[in-house]
Simulated assay, not measured.
Amino acid sequence: MKREELEALGLSKEQIDGTLDMYHKEHDPVQKELDTVKADLTAEQEKVKTHEGTIEGLKKDLEEFKDADVSGMKQKIEDLEKDIKAKEADYQQQIADRDFDDVLKDSINAAHGKNAKAIKALLDVETLKASKNQKEDVAAAIKALSEAEDSKMLFGEAEPNPTGKGDPIGGVGGTGTKPQADSLMSALEEKYKSK
C-alpha cells in the first residue's frame, strides 16, 4: 500500500496518514516475524547440510580405513562432535544476539531515541543480555536514561527539518544576499572605472 495509491483515491492527508499507520501497525510485526522465521529456517538448512557433509565424510573415511585403528576413528568422531557442539553454541549465540539487538532497537525507537549508538554506549549491555526478562529490563534501563539529567537530551521527537526556499543566512523569500551582492559588485566596478 503506497501513499500515491491512496492519494489517487482522493483521500485527505489525515486519512492517508491514519490508514498507513493502521497498515504498518498490523503489517510490520508480521513482516518482522516472517523475516525472523526465514532467517532461522536458512540457518537450520545450513546446519543440516553441514551434518550431511560430516556423515558423508565419515562414511568415506570408514571405507578408506576399514583396516585402520578404531581408536583413531573414535577420536576423530569425538573431535567432530565437539566441533558440531561448538558451532551449535555459536549459532545459538548469534540468534540470541540478534534477538537482543532487535529488542534494544525497538525499545530505543519506542522511547524516541535520537542517537541509538550513544544510548547503547550508556547501557550495561552485557547485564541486559544476561537478563531473563530482557524486554522489560531494557525498557526500564532506557526509561531511566530518558529521565536522567545527563542523558535525557538523547531522547525526544526529532527536530523538524526546515522547509521552503529561505536564505539560511537570514533572508527569506528573495530578500537574501543576491541583490546585496549585485549592488556591491556594481559599486566596485564603478569605483575602478573612475580610476
Rank of each mutant, 00 (worst) to 15 (best):
Gln15Ser: 02
Lys13Ala: 14
Ile84Gly: 00
Ile55Gln: 07
Asp21His: 03
Ala43Lys: 04
Asp28Lys: 04
Lys60Pro: 03
Lys38Leu: 05
Ala68Leu: 03
Val37Asn: 11
Asp61Asn: 07
Tyr23Asp: 10
Met22Gln: 14
Ile55Trp: 06
Ala86His: 07
Glu33Leu: 15
Lys25Gly: 15
Ser12Pro: 00
Val48Met: 06
Asp83Phe: 13
Lys66Tyr: 03
Thr42Cys: 02
Lys25Val: 11
Glu63Ser: 09
Asp40Phe: 05
Ser12Trp: 07
Glu64Leu: 14
Lys82Cys: 03
Glu14Arg: 05
His27Val: 10
Asp17Phe: 06
Leu9Cys: 10
Asp67Lys: 07
Tyr23Leu: 15
Ser71Arg: 11
Ile77Val: 14
Lys60Leu: 11
Gln45Ala: 07
Val70Ser: 09
Glu33Asp: 09
Val37Ser: 05
Thr42Gln: 12
Asp90Thr: 04
Val37Arg: 15
Met22Leu: 08
Asp61Cys: 04
Glu56Gly: 07
Glu52Cys: 09
Leu20Asp: 01
Leu9Pro: 01
Glu46Leu: 11
Lys25Trp: 13
Asp90Ala: 12
Gly10Leu: 09
Asp83Tyr: 12
Ser71Pro: 03
Ile77Asp: 07
Leu11Gly: 00
Leu80His: 01
Lys25Ala: 15
Leu41Ile: 08
Leu58Asn: 00
His27Met: 14
Lys82Trp: 09
Ile55Tyr: 08
Ala39Asn: 08
Leu58Gly: 00
Asp79Glu: 09
Leu34Thr: 02
Asp79Ala: 09
Gln92Asn: 13
Gly18Tyr: 10
Ile16His: 01
Ile16Phe: 01
Asp28Ile: 06
Lys49Cys: 01
Asp69Pro: 00
His24Cys: 07
Ala43Trp: 01
Gly10Tyr: 12
His24Gly: 11
Asp40Tyr: 07
Gly53Ile: 03
Met22Val: 10
Gly10Glu: 02
Ile55Pro: 05
Lys32Tyr: 09
Glu64Met: 11
Asp67Pro: 00
Lys87Gly: 05
His51Tyr: 06
Asp35Ala: 12
Leu11Asn: 00
Leu9Ala: 02
Lys38Ser: 10
Ile77Lys: 02
Val48Pro: 05
Glu56Tyr: 14
Gly57Asp: 02
Gly53Met: 06
Asp61Val: 06
Ile84Trp: 09
Met22Pro: 04
Lys76Val: 06
Glu88Val: 04
Leu20Glu: 03
Ala43Pro: 12
Gly72Lys: 15
Asp61Gln: 10
Ala43Ser: 10
Ala39Gln: 12
Ile16Tyr: 01
Val70Ile: 15
Ser71Asp: 12
Glu14Trp: 02
Gly72Val: 13
Glu64Ala: 14
Asp17Ser: 06
